[in-house]
Design a protein around this nucleic acid. Structure first.
Lengths: 213, 213
DNA sequence: GTTCCAATTGGAA
DNA sequence: GTTCCAATTGGAA
């Protein structure tokens, strides 16, 4: 993971220092490579026999779900809302429950058609799409990344913390797929929660304006 | 500029999708390439005859200073503290005034030894170093990127705006050299100003504790 | 309707 | 002593 980041960082520097000569030849092949890779990632049919392979490819070297760290004793500092209450229920129209693909360590599962629709060019879009796929809007609006108070608003109550295992699955996936630092992905999550909270607030306000108490 | 960003973004995706096979061979040559490039960037002596070449290389294709856009009519929305008052004075111990190297469009100038000391691996460090090299601490503490009020603290007065031309020179330089989006660089500037303001505040507080009025 | 911008904060790293 | 973390906000894009 860390090696990936260092490698990407070095490559970025090389790119800048040697635009036009060293890496130019690679550019010509980019489109072909991407096309091929995308084809491989395209879902075919919900066929269990090659499901494992597809997951392997999508998660790109992640451990499979149910690893020994499932029950590791690590406790998050803030109180965690345990259990599945934070997890988005499978949509009613989906009859095939197996169509959920685990990401990261496998705590989080995402509908395969959502996962394959994600364009990994934008780590912000990818993060927000995964968040919406994994958490109900209500949870996003009422929880935050750390579960801590805003240092700038010490009088306000803190929101609850987003399930850290699910968050980690998202962070690791986006960070790896988009080769950006985990911090940037975490910032996206903070912003997304703030945006959902604002939307929620605005809807309540609009409702109050319509039907004033 | 935009092409660079798109290219880097594509490369990042390729990296993720094809770790270990497509780009692996390139990795072996990274160290050599970087060494060679670093050697080229190393300052030799303040010798005017090859100064231009070094600047050309460092700025990587930027226009030279004194371009026709020097007097373009673009006016920033917030009030700008015009003139050199925002610009860091050349340190007293420097006898060679020519040792200032322009970056970006050339509004901002940086001591050559500072410029060559910057490690472009970290865009945050690079941005902060350039800020300290170009603006006095006092300006960083009392100005902000936009010159606008905080939306979260509408009662507080807005700080003044950092000279946008100097900011642009920094943003363009770091964005290009580190192949990160301009927005990320701008975020760094916001944070740096906030940090300087905090330091300033703390120093005043410490002084008041010592010599209470 | 969503996403991004950027100013502010106290404490942690 | 400096840099980073992340929560909050209203408006702009």
């Amino acid at each position: 993971m860390c090696d990936n980041e260092n490698f990407a960082r070095k490559l970025r520097q090389i790119l800048t220092l040697s635009i036009g000569n060293v890496v130019k030849p690679l550019q010509d092949n980019l489109e072909d490579i991407m096309t091929i890779r995308n084809l491989k990632l395209c879902p075919v049919r919900p066929d269990k026999s090659n499901r494992a392979l597809r997951i392997e490819e999508i998660n790109n070297g992640f451990k499979e779900s149910g690893s020994e760290e499932e029950n590791s004793g690590e406790q998050p500092r803030a109180s965690v809302e345990a259990g599945p209450s934070q997890i988005r229920e499978t949509p009613a129209q989906s009859t095939d429950n197996d169509d959920m693909i685990p990401i990261g360590k496998g705590h989080a599962k995402v509908l395969s058609k959502v996962l394959t629709s994600i364009k990994w060019m934008s780590y912000t879009k990818a993060t927000r799409t995964l968040l919406e796929a994994i958490f109900p809007r209500r949870v996003l609006a009422t929880h935050s990344l750390s579960g801590k108070q805003s240092p700038a608003f010490m009088d306000r109550p803190a929101k609850k913390i987003l399930n850290p295992k699910l968050v980690d699955d998202i962070v690791n996936t986006v960070s790896t797929k988009c080769v950006v630092s985990k911090n940037l992905v975490r910032k996206c999550i903070t912003v997304k929660c703030a945006d959902e909270a604002k939307t929620c607030r605005q809807q309540k306000r609009a409702l109050n304006d319509k039907i004033p108490l």
